[in-house]
């Protein structure tokens, strides 16, 4: 395999992990293991949530370095797991570097999830949490509808900062819909409906990544993930407050 191919393999592996919700230590660790499995000398990797730096010494004794800026960030844990599996296969000698490059290139292409995947799974999540918060049938149904609507926002609002818009607008809908439903019908526990609908927006992955990165001693990435979790939580709370305020403006009584 050429040096350019080796750089591409390591960069792609790190990029897929970081851009799909993996921890920074996992990206660094995987790159290091892959580099060793490919026989590269003195490999090193440094990652932060927004970038990745990789160095190694090639067969000619020259030091090679690659810098990679992470742009998008999505959540697809099955891709992170797939890279991990490929790393294991490479270490075990089950695949070659060239085969790995082909598989990683395939894995880095946009996922072909159904359009309904996010709304349906968010509805299932909200349904479970509405039940947890002492809700019954109405709470589960309304929470599920509000959570599904939240995930449909990118269908009509495809903008550069659509995740931020989704969080604020989605949490506003998650608060407003149950309040209006309760106001009109008198049915359901508002707390259970709203909290259930908001749960799919909770930044659980960022929170866990922050903890796991800090546990591994990576304070920079841990702090960045923690800041992301706090900002997301603030946006969700702000959106729910907006929804509550809108309910008051249109004549609702809390």
């Amino acid at each position: 395999m050429t040096t350019a191919g080796q750089i591409k393999v390591l960069t792609l592996a790190g990029r897929i992990i970081l851009e799909n919700g993996g921890e920074t230590y996992r990206a660094e660790d995987t790159i290091f293991r892959m580099a060793k499995a490919m026989g590269l000398k003195e490999p090193d990797a440094f990652g932060v949530p927004s970038g990745l730096f990789i160095s190694f010494t090639d067969a000619q004794g020259e030091r090679q370095t690659s810098v990679c800026r992470m742009h998008g960030r999505d959540t697809d844990l099955s891709r992170v797991d797939a890279v991990n599996q490929l790393s294991r296969q490479l270490s075990a000698g089950d695949i070659t570097g060239d085969e790995l490059l082909v598989k990683l290139t395939e894995l880095s292409k946009p996922a072909a999830h159904s359009r309904w995947h996010a709304p349906l799974t968010a509805a299932l999540t909200a349904l479970g949490f509405a039940l947890m918060f002492e809700g019954s049938l109405w709470e589960m149904v309304i929470s599920a509808i509000a959570a599904a609507l939240t995930q449909m926002i990118p269908w009509v609002w495809s903008w550069q900062h659509d995740n931020m818009i989704k969080l604020v607008l989605g949490s506003a809908i998650s608060a407003l819909l149950p309040l209006v439903f309760h106001h009109i019908t008198g049915l359901g526990l508002v707390d259970a409906m709203v909290a259930g609908a908001l749960m799919p927006l909770v930044p659980g992955l960022s929170m866990t990544n922050a903890v796991l990165d800090v546990v591994r001693g990576d304070m920079v990435s841990g702090t960045a993930h923690g800041a992301r979790a706090l900002l997301t939580a603030a946006l969700v709370a702000g959106g729910a407050l907006i929804g509550t305020a809108v309910f008051g403006w249109i004549g609702g009584v809390l």
């Binding site: 959540t75 995947h117 996010a118 299932l124 999540t125 479970g128 949490f129 039940l131 749960m199």
Partner: peptide, 15 residues
């Protein structure tokens, strides 16, 4: 509820 909530999150995060 714990099972449903976690399963929903698992699917949402594409586990």
């Amino acid at each position: 509820s714990g099972y449903l909530g976690a399963a929903g999150f698992g699917a949402l995060l594409n586990a």
